[in-house]
Amino acid sequence: MNILVCIKQIPDMESRFKIDAAGTWYDQADLAWRMNEYDEFAVEQAVQLKEQLGDADLTVLSIGPDRTKEMIKKALAMGADRGVQVADDHSHLHDPHTIASLIATFARQHQFDLIFAGMQSQDRGSAQVGVLVAEMLGIPSLTTLVEFSYTDGTISAKRELEGGARALVSCTAPALVTCQLGLNTPRYPTLPNIMKAKKKELLTIPVGDLNPADPQQKTISMAFPEKRGSGLILEGDASELAERLMRILKEKTTVLV
């Protein structure tokens, strides 16, 4: 069985963001980069499937600049067999349709039985790329999964709905699934597996080789949202803050009687 996992490198969401010189994206400098959280669940599920089947080949693919390789190595240490970096210093400027077109071109060349992706990225959060890849390939896609199983070519899964209900769905491979938070417990790479990962194949493909689709949208500008909250910010040491919070609870709420 031939499996692909699509992963993305994103900045730590706790970062203090700045807007770049063009005014259309966040400044990429001085950020700590990590694997998109949703994609960690995708890698873990694919590795679990490989362990279940025994006979499976697992490729992880990411689109981005050189630093992307560090994150790909983490996926290799988690258990993927091969990493592919689609080298692109401008990947952050591409719309979801262009990103999907690159993955679809790669997937057509390798005939995957199953493709895993996160349900969205933490920075753009479009929730489009996975579904678009599946539609471009003409295969079914199941999105927002919180449970996944695979038996004899059939994927049975649960989709998460609003309010915590779930929809029970299934389809047959080849197919694409997108992973919601909580689908599994992503493993931490162990030191021996990190060492082993260094010897695994990590290919680099120039983005131009994968026929990127033309952009369909444009960012006019990026900005910080207007602060709607006129909230009071309290700073100081803990005992002072506890005092002040007590006063606020007495004056502004009715919970202390």
Partner: peptide
């Protein structure tokens, strides 16, 4: 083209959040 999770309309342009709504973008199709 698709704009996901539109939060506002400003001067006819659609606004979408980025990075957990720490930032936002004004978009054009």
């Amino acid at each position: 083209t698709q704009f996901s999770e539109v939060v506002d309309v400003q001067e006819g342009h659609l606004i979408v959040p980025v990075c957990n709504a720490k930032l936002q973008r004004r978009m054009k199709a």
